[in-house]
């Protein structure tokens, strides 16, 4: 009897240890409108096209109200059992890693670290849910009030998953930092309730991801219009996605000879063996399926955080 109990515990242990869905990371950043209004945007010109990029590092160094507001949101989220990824620490760590990697060479040949231009581009502050923070001080005579906006965006599906917005009561005496703190505290619970609803939806309907399929232009002539047993590759992939999503929920928003874009793809939170499912594993299953006969296709898999994968067919 004792032996059986021990065996049962040993069998259940991996399920308990690994049977948890991957936790999304959340990071608070100042909204672009806030950065623009407060002069924290850099103008960049590329082939005549002007773009404005927010300067988070300078904003955090210069604007103590921003620093305080982000810290307060972090404190309240920690109290809710969900610590945030800190923007300031992430920027510092990226700068530090960049400096260290530049100095790292091998002992024998003196080679530096290999890094593709794409990998370089991807090394930026990122999270699965980006929470945009903005506020504006409204002054009417001696009275001040704060209009506050907090917006949670799923970084890879670009959907707004939670928001809290409002203008606080006007005050004659309270200082601006106090009004901002009040706005943060007053709006946080509604934000958390919506975030909770989003997580509940994940549990019921699966995690929403985006999947993109492309073709390498390597002269092989491969395309999604290639036929296998009378079925175009587009149909083969479409069928596979339908069979492997939660309640066949997905949307094929673009399908041409070289590109297939799947949106709102609901993948299960767990694999059949109880291990957590993620975007990479889901896309990798498709990669393995296409590798087998009769398709025999080699493909390269690139992921972007938890929510997006790109499978490029043709070569590695």
């Amino acid at each position: 009897m004792k032996k059986r109990m021990i065996i049962a515990i040993l069998l259940l242990l991996p399920m308990v240890m690994f049977g948890q869905a991957k936790k999304p990371t959340i990071m608070v950043v100042p909204a672009d409108t806030w950065c623009s209004e407060n002069g924290y945007m850099t103008k960049s010109e590329n082939q005549g096209k002007v773009t404005y990029i927010p300067e988070y590092e300078r904003a955090l160094q210069d604007h103590s109200d921003l620093y305080n507001a982000i810290t307060k949101i972090g404190e309240l989220m920690s109290e809710n059992g969900f610590p945030l990824k800190d923007l300031s620490a992430t920027i510092k760590s990226l700068n530090q890693a960049e400096a260290e990697n530049a100095m790292l060479v091998s002992k024998t040949s003196g080679a530096t670290l290999a890094e593709t231009p794409y990998e370089k581009l991807m090394a930026r502050a990122k999270a699965d849910i980006i929470v945009e923070l903005a506020w504006k001080i409204n002054s009417v005579g001696p009275k001040n009030s704060v209009t506050y906006t907090l917006r949670g965006l799923d970084a890879y599906t670009n959907k707004q998953v939670a928001a809290a917005q409002g203008t606080g009561a006007a005050s004659y005496s309270a200082e601006i930092p106090v009004l901002i703190e009040e706005a943060v505290v007053q709006n946080m619970d509604n934000f958390v309730i919506q975030l909770q609803n989003h997580f509940d939806d994940l549990l019921t309907n699966g995690r929403e991801i985006a999947l993109e399929l492309r073709v390498f232009d390597n002269g092989s002539g491969a395309s999604f219009e290639d036929e296998f047993d009378g079925m175009e590759l587009t149909e083969v992939i479409d069928d596979w996605i339908a069979q492997n999503t939660v309640e066949h929920r997905y949307s094929l928003s673009d399908a041409t000879e070289n590109v297939m874009v799947f949106e709102q793809v609901r993948i299960p939170l767990y694999r059949t063996n109880g291990m957590p499912m993620d975007t990479r594993h889901f896309a990798s299953e498709l990669r393995k399926y296409l590798r087998k006969a009769p398709y025999n296709l080699t493909s390269k898999l690139v992921t972007k955080g938890l929510g997006k994968a790109i499978l490029i067919i043709g070569e590695k």
Binding site: P24, M77, N80, F82, V192, Q196, F199, D200
Partner: peptide, 22 residues
């Protein structure tokens, strides 16, 4: 005292926390 209230109800399992799914 809503923080304590929520914390106790989470502990009792009648309301979910952000962390409970992960």
């Amino acid at each position: 005292n809503k923080d304590q209230l929520v914390s106790d109800l989470k502990a009792a399992g009648v309301i979910k926390g952000l962390n409970s799914a992960f």
